[in-house]
Write a protein that binds this DNA or RNA. Structure first.
Lengths: 203, 203
DNA sequence: GTCTATAACCTGATAGAC
DNA sequence: GTCTATCAGGTTATAGAC
């Protein structure tokens, strides 16, 4: 019992890093347990199977990000001067800040992997558990910027999610320059993305 | 010799479908050859290794898409009434049309996977071979819409690529409605994305 | 809760017959 | 160019001692 949390936590941490780097299929439980410095059998003891480990890992991070987004949205809406920009910020900033606030920098890349996945189980899990966040933001955007059809609204929200994820996976051409701190880089990225997307929503 | 192309082609086709569905690491050569109805040893005979198979597969599709984009860009620039919208269309439309023109519908999902990959070899391969296309588009956008710094330009191009890929991987909330044809759906998607992104570039 | 040992199986790759 | 057979090593999962 005393080490239970520690071991479980270490497994989750190592799994997150390795899944982000090499993907689910290419990462073996042996690599994970070796990296986490725990026994191979611990995975099955604590999670039951590799598939369950993936799901717990997803749940942990998505809950964090969704909570952050909801809180930020509520705060934005409670302001009298709520704008499209402030609503979009509530959606974008929590994702971009995940890495620093929760030490979850690897998760965004895992999320990017999930997008490419045709895995019905994973898609259903995500849509059932976190689809309501998207709907809340759609509602909020409709308040500050009415007139978009439901289809146009969700299409544009998909564009935002795509631009956000792609940027976060650090695949694109823009890398952080040598003299710029991580925080500065993220701030500039956030601002540019918000202004890009709010212009897009107004189009 | 007589069957060489056929076998090679069948392997590439099956690999593309399965890599898109399950990822590189989770797809075995046995699954591929069984799906392609060829002998397991044929992969090594024709490609040498799994890694080479992946690279040939990438090269085949990326060459198609890059050529289509370059041609479309040249055509757009040769028009006296070239606009930001027409340049963005030259970037976006070839990707969205890949599935229908070249029967490469699976490839966009593979590309989305590649984005999430931290595989240095793959990243280097893509950036070395196809980075010039991005640069050509950056130059073209600067002609029709001057003023963006190099960093801001590439940042926004990354947003476009992200929104495009995400949309193409059919992960988002917007699905094609029952009464709408694939072609109509793609056309609407293209137009919305172009207007979203050109507004973003003007912001 | 943690460990070792092992079962049962799948993996990429290749040698060699045809 | 295509096949079978096989290698060496990796995989998840679990039984059972501590």
């Amino acid at each position: 019992m005393t080490q239970a949390f520690s071991t479980k936590h270490r497994i989750l941490g190592a799994a997150e890093e390795l899944f982000a780097r090499h993907g689910f299929g290419s990462t073996s439980l042996r690599q994970i347990t070796s990296h986490a410095d725990v026994n191979i059998a611990a995975v099955n003891y604590h999670f039951g199977s590799k598939e369950n480990l993936v799901e717990e890992l997803f749940r942990r991070r998505m809950d964090q990000m969704s909570t952050d987004r909801r809180n930020a949205l509520q705060k934005a809406l409670s302001d009298k001067d709520v704008t499209l920009e402030s609503v979009l910020r509530a959606y974008i900033e929590p994702a971009l800040q995940m890495g620093r606030k929760h030490n979850g920098g690897h998760f965004v890349r895992i999320l990017a992997r999930a997008y490419a996945e045709q895995n019905d189980r994973l898609r259903k899990f995500l849509s059932e558990n976190y689809g309501s966040v998207q709907r809340d933001f759609a509602k909020a955007i409709d308040q500050v910027r009415p007139g978009l059809s439901k289809e146009q609204m969700y299409l544009r929200l998909d564009f935002v999610a795509g631009a956000l994820t792609y940027t976060l996976s650090e695949f694109g051409m823009v890398k952080r320059a040598a003299g710029v701190s991580e925080a500065q880089h993220l701030d500039k990225l956030t601002d540019t993305l918000i202004s890009f997307c709010s212009a897009g929503f107004k189009s």
